[in-house]
Computed example of a mutant assay.
Amino acid sequence: MEETAPRPAFRAARPTALLATALLLLAGAAWLARAVWEIRLSVAGEPASGPPDQGDGNHRPLTSLEDAYHIVGAVGDVVVVLCAAAFLAWLWQVRDNARALSGRPPRYRGIWVYLGWIVPVVNLWVPRGLVVDVHRASAPDKRLPFVVNVWWALWLIGMLSGVGLISRESRDGLIERAYSDVWQLLVSDAAVVGAAVAAVFVVRAVTSVQSERAAGGPAPTGADGA
């Protein structure tokens, strides 16, 4: 999976890291707001008229709280898309920087920076592998930060829960679940918020080791503990 493209020049990743960090925190806040509304729905209880989706294509009018949940969820979706774009821009840049610092091609072709997140099965390990490869090439004398594994574990929980980042239910279905099994939603929400916060530390750690390496010259070769 090696590339033969020309070796890129090192470019400081701090600006893209700052943008990615800001949007990660904003995405975490948006998902926290979603959890707050789910708790409010659970406390309010399901209306006597039943769930929003009443089957056979019939939907009753939403309550004000349910309507607000739709708005909170829609805003969160937009923030998550912006966050994903910023994180991928950062990842692409530090990937190029890792090649500039190490002189060796990345383990994964550039297309996997994007496809690695959406191709089934492959998305269980490739995104983490991209970050690990960048860190290894940038700082071969340092161990992989433990927060990378924390971030990835929380990301997988949020992704595979079925009610988190990749939801198999409509928003009306999530409202119905909030009335009956809100704890499932909250566990998933906690994982997503935790993954966003952990990703902030991942971005800072990788950006920092690259800046140190660029300022201090070539680092000795060695295992990074990944």
Rank of each mutant, 00 (worst) to 15 (best):
W90S: 11
L91D: 03
W92E: 04
V94N: 09
V94R: 10
D96W: 04
N97Y: 06
N97H: 06
R99T: 14
R99E: 14
A100Q: 09
G103W: 09
R104F: 03
R104W: 03
R104C: 01
R104P: 03
P105N: 05
P105F: 03
P106H: 05
Y108P: 08
G110S: 10
G110Q: 08
I111N: 00
W112E: 03
V113A: 10
Y114V: 15
L115M: 06
G116W: 00
G116R: 03
V121Q: 00
V121M: 02
V122F: 04
N123V: 00
L124I: 06
W125E: 00
P127A: 00
R128K: 15
V131A: 10
V131G: 00
R136A: 14
R136G: 03
R136I: 06
A137F: 01
S138C: 06
S138L: 07
A139Q: 06
A139V: 08
A139D: 03
P140I: 09
K142R: 15
R143T: 13
R143V: 11
L144S: 06
P145Y: 07
F146Q: 13
V147R: 13
N149K: 08
N149Q: 07
N149P: 02
V150T: 14
W151L: 07
W152D: 02
W152M: 05
A153P: 02
L154P: 06
W155K: 05
W155Y: 15
L156E: 01
L156W: 04
I157R: 05
G158H: 04
G158E: 02
L160E: 01
G162S: 05
G162C: 07
V163D: 05
V163P: 09
G164F: 11
L165R: 09
I166M: 11
S167G: 07
R168M: 12
R171C: 01
R171G: 04
D172F: 10
D172Q: 13
L174H: 12
I175R: 13
I175D: 11
E176I: 02
Y179K: 13
S180T: 15
S180Q: 12
D181T: 15
V182R: 14
W183E: 14
W183L: 15
W183G: 11
Q184S: 13
D189A: 13
A190D: 03
A191L: 10
V192D: 01
V193S: 02
V193H: 02
G194I: 08
A195T: 04
A195P: 12
A196C: 15
A196D: 04
V197D: 01
A198M: 09
A198K: 11
V200S: 02
F201W: 15
A205E: 11
V209C: 06
Q210E: 15
Q210Y: 03
S211K: 07
S211C: 02
E212C: 02
